[in-house]
Nucleic acid binder design. Structure first.
Lengths: 167, 167
DNA sequence: TCAACCAGTTTCGAAATGCAACCGGTTAAC
DNA sequence: GTTAACCGGTTGCATTTCGAAACTGGTTGA
């Protein structure tokens, strides 16, 4: 992947970092699927990413500051990938992309429910979710009063899956 | 470019349509630069797109319903490319991408001023701009009361360029 | 001890990218 | 009426990237 800068336009620079078919998929799985290890990302991948592509994307995202990696103390080979403020700040982009995809593309019901909730919740919900991701990935303090957005999104997804399986 | 669908996730589907380094650049230039002909897109390209890449992207965007093309009555060879409701609806994504790029990437001042205005204006400004693009590209009725967002963005850009040249 | 698991790497054919030269038709200036 | 510039692309070719599958060397738990 070429790293020469084509122009200083913010749209272009964003595309130079994220403009391919896998980078945002990897971040999405870490963010919404809470997958933190290489194997989790590889084996639970909805889109079937290849291991070499995953490895190269993780490396690139680390270099660009969108992820960090620390060794897992419970297993000498495992690494734990975490989001950074930079990638947590992608939430509004994910939300808008999800809303656009929901409106114009042939999405499946169970995979679109989270995008729908995120759209309906609007910026206040996005802020709550970002705060929550900071707790999970950056070790920020958790506000024990607030209900978890992550759990709400997960529950809504599970509910659709369960409903469709029983039908 | 592969057209097989990997999953029904709205984020993934959006990436399958727009997830490359050029598609959004082409739409951006039509949208914010009001470039409607092949040569305009080719020669005024900030990032220096190659003619074969431009041709293949225009074709692909037409196929996906993000652009339409009509013959230019003033010149037998020219075609006029227009946005559709689908591409006009990308405005929130562009706005969020611009805001993110402005915050985290080494943008140049003159190319970031429009992204900044779009961010500050928020959803009301985006809606005005979308309405204006519908007039320009879909032939919708113009509200003669409303000042043009397009002109405001252009003026702000020209002002920064002029200021920097005199400095 | 050994099978399962771990994070990747290697290999190789297929596809996409990027550059430059080129194409035949059209238009506007002389 | 001729001609040079312009029009939307296409072609050829070298380089890079993608993607599938097999593989590596090390770790862990039964």
């Amino acid at each position: 992947m070429e790293d020469r800068i084509r122009s200083g336009c913010p749209i272009n620079l964003t595309l130079e970092v994220l403009g391919d078919r896998w980078s945002l998929i990897v971040i999405r799985d870490i963010m919404f699927g809470n997958r933190r290890h290489f194997r989790e990302l590889l084996q639970n991948s909805e889109e079937g990413i290849a291991s070499n592509i995953l490895a190269s994307r993780l490396k690139r995202l680390l270099e660009h500051g969108l992820l960090t990696r620390v060794d897992d103390p419970s297993h000498k080979q495992k690494g734990i990938y975490s989001l950074t403020e930079m990638s947590i700040s992608l939430i509004p982009i994910f939300a808008e992309m999800g809303a656009w995809g929901n409106r114009f593309l042939p999405v499946s019901e169970e995979l679109s429910i989270r995008a729908q909730l995120l759209e309906e919740g609007g910026r206040p919900l996005w802020n709550d979710f970002m705060e929550e991701l900071r707790v999970l990935h950056l070790g920020a303090e958790r506000d024990p009063q607030k209900p978890s957005v992550f759990e709400r999104l997960q529950a809504a997804y599970q509910e659709v899956v369960a409903r469709r399986q029983s039908a």
